[in-house]
Protein backbone atom coordinates (compact mmCIF):
# COMPACT_ATOMS: atom_id res chain seq x y z
CA UNK A 1 0.00 0.00 0.00
CA UNK A 2 2.83 2.40 0.78
CA UNK A 3 4.15 1.80 -2.73
CA UNK A 4 0.96 3.41 -4.07
CA UNK A 5 1.61 6.68 -2.27
CA UNK A 6 1.27 8.86 -5.44
CA UNK A 7 -2.21 7.49 -6.21
CA UNK A 8 -3.32 7.93 -2.59
CA UNK A 9 -2.01 11.50 -2.73
CA UNK A 10 -4.07 12.03 -5.89
CA UNK A 11 -7.24 10.78 -4.16
CA UNK A 12 -6.64 13.01 -1.13
CA UNK A 13 -5.89 16.04 -3.33
CA UNK A 14 -9.10 15.53 -5.27
CA UNK A 15 -11.01 15.26 -1.99
CA UNK A 16 -9.44 18.47 -0.69
CA UNK A 17 -10.20 20.34 -3.91
CA UNK A 18 -13.82 19.12 -3.97
CA UNK A 19 -14.24 20.24 -0.37
CA UNK A 20 -12.82 23.67 -1.23
CA UNK A 21 -15.05 24.07 -4.29
CA UNK A 22 -18.23 22.96 -2.52
CA UNK A 23 -17.79 24.46 0.94
CA UNK A 24 -16.06 27.80 0.41
CA UNK A 25 -17.92 31.02 -0.26
CA UNK A 26 -15.02 33.09 -1.55
CA UNK A 27 -14.82 32.79 -5.33
CA UNK A 28 -11.04 33.31 -5.42
CA UNK A 29 -10.74 30.26 -3.17
CA UNK A 30 -13.01 28.32 -5.53
CA UNK A 31 -10.61 29.10 -8.38
CA UNK A 32 -7.76 27.92 -6.15
CA UNK A 33 -9.65 24.66 -5.57
CA UNK A 34 -10.03 24.15 -9.30
CA UNK A 35 -6.28 24.70 -9.71
CA UNK A 36 -5.60 22.06 -7.05
CA UNK A 37 -7.93 19.67 -8.92
CA UNK A 38 -6.01 20.29 -12.11
CA UNK A 39 -2.70 19.60 -10.32
CA UNK A 40 -4.12 16.37 -8.93
CA UNK A 41 -5.10 15.23 -12.42
CA UNK A 42 -1.61 16.07 -13.72
CA UNK A 43 -0.04 14.08 -10.89
CA UNK A 44 -2.33 11.13 -11.63
CA UNK A 45 -1.41 11.12 -15.32
CA UNK A 46 2.33 11.29 -14.70
CA UNK A 47 2.18 8.65 -11.94
CA UNK A 48 0.15 6.36 -14.22
CA UNK A 49 2.89 6.25 -16.83
CA UNK A 50 5.82 5.67 -14.52
CA UNK A 51 7.93 2.58 -14.95
CA UNK A 52 10.37 1.26 -12.38
CA UNK A 53 13.85 2.75 -13.08
CA UNK A 54 12.58 4.34 -16.28
CA UNK A 55 14.25 7.26 -18.04
CA UNK A 56 12.60 10.18 -19.84
CA UNK A 57 11.46 9.18 -23.37
CA UNK A 58 14.21 11.07 -25.22
CA UNK A 59 16.86 9.35 -27.29
CA UNK A 60 19.44 12.17 -27.25
CA UNK A 61 22.48 10.74 -25.40
CA UNK A 62 20.34 8.40 -23.33
CA UNK A 63 21.90 5.49 -21.43
CA UNK A 64 21.96 2.29 -23.49
CA UNK A 65 19.30 -0.32 -22.91
CA UNK A 66 17.34 1.60 -20.29
CA UNK A 67 13.55 1.34 -20.20
CA UNK A 68 11.54 4.47 -20.93
CA UNK A 69 8.46 5.75 -19.11
CA UNK A 70 5.22 5.99 -21.06
CA UNK A 71 5.14 9.08 -23.31
CA UNK A 72 1.43 9.48 -24.09
CA UNK A 73 0.41 10.52 -20.59
CA UNK A 74 3.19 13.11 -20.60
CA UNK A 75 1.82 14.60 -23.82
CA UNK A 76 -1.65 14.73 -22.25
CA UNK A 77 -0.19 16.45 -19.17
CA UNK A 78 1.45 19.04 -21.42
CA UNK A 79 -1.94 19.76 -22.98
CA UNK A 80 -3.62 19.92 -19.59
CA UNK A 81 -1.16 22.45 -18.15
CA UNK A 82 -1.65 24.95 -20.98
CA UNK A 83 -5.45 24.61 -20.96
CA UNK A 84 -5.36 25.02 -17.17
CA UNK A 85 -3.42 28.27 -17.39
CA UNK A 86 -5.83 29.66 -20.00
CA UNK A 87 -8.98 28.72 -18.09
CA UNK A 88 -7.56 30.01 -14.79
CA UNK A 89 -6.85 33.38 -16.41
CA UNK A 90 -10.38 33.51 -17.80
CA UNK A 91 -11.94 32.57 -14.44
CA UNK A 92 -9.91 35.20 -12.58
CA UNK A 93 -10.96 37.82 -15.14
CA UNK A 94 -14.62 36.89 -14.60
CA UNK A 95 -14.15 37.10 -10.81
CA UNK A 96 -12.70 40.59 -11.28
CA UNK A 97 -15.77 41.57 -13.31
CA UNK A 98 -18.05 40.23 -10.56
CA UNK A 99 -16.12 42.17 -7.93
CA UNK A 100 -16.36 45.33 -9.99
CA UNK A 101 -20.13 44.93 -10.44
CA UNK A 102 -21.25 43.67 -7.02
CA UNK A 103 -18.43 44.85 -4.74
CA UNK A 104 -17.95 41.39 -3.27
CA UNK A 105 -16.63 37.96 -4.20
CA UNK A 106 -18.95 36.15 -1.80
CA UNK A 107 -20.99 33.69 -3.81
CA UNK A 108 -23.95 33.95 -1.40
CA UNK A 109 -24.35 37.67 -1.91
CA UNK A 110 -24.14 37.58 -5.69
CA UNK A 111 -26.55 34.68 -6.01
CA UNK A 112 -29.67 36.78 -5.77
CA UNK A 113 -30.06 38.95 -8.81
CA UNK A 114 -29.74 42.63 -8.15
CA UNK A 115 -31.74 45.09 -10.23
Amino acid sequence: MIANLPFIAVALLIGISLAIILLKKNMIKMVMGLSILEGAVNLFLVALGYRENGIAPIFTSAPEGAEMVLPTVQALTLTNIVIGVATTALMLALVMVIYKKYGTVNSNKIRRLKE
Binding site: N4, L5, P6, F7, V10, G15, L18, A19, E52
Partner: peptide, 19 residues
Protein backbone atom coordinates in the same frame (compact mmCIF):
# COMPACT_ATOMS: atom_id res chain seq x y z
CA UNK B 1 -16.85 14.77 -0.22
CA UNK B 2 -15.68 12.10 2.22
CA UNK B 3 -17.60 9.45 0.27
CA UNK B 4 -16.07 10.61 -3.02
CA UNK B 5 -12.58 10.48 -1.52
CA UNK B 6 -13.16 6.97 -0.19
CA UNK B 7 -14.46 5.81 -3.57
CA UNK B 8 -11.37 7.30 -5.23
CA UNK B 9 -9.10 5.55 -2.72
CA UNK B 10 -10.31 2.10 -3.83
CA UNK B 11 -8.66 2.16 -7.32
CA UNK B 12 -5.73 4.09 -5.88
CA UNK B 13 -4.88 1.10 -3.68
CA UNK B 14 -5.64 -1.34 -6.48
CA UNK B 15 -3.35 0.16 -9.11
CA UNK B 16 0.30 -0.81 -9.03
CA UNK B 17 2.71 2.09 -9.20
CA UNK B 18 5.83 1.63 -11.31
CA UNK B 19 4.46 -1.15 -13.52
Amino acid sequence: VVLATLILLVPAVGLNFGD
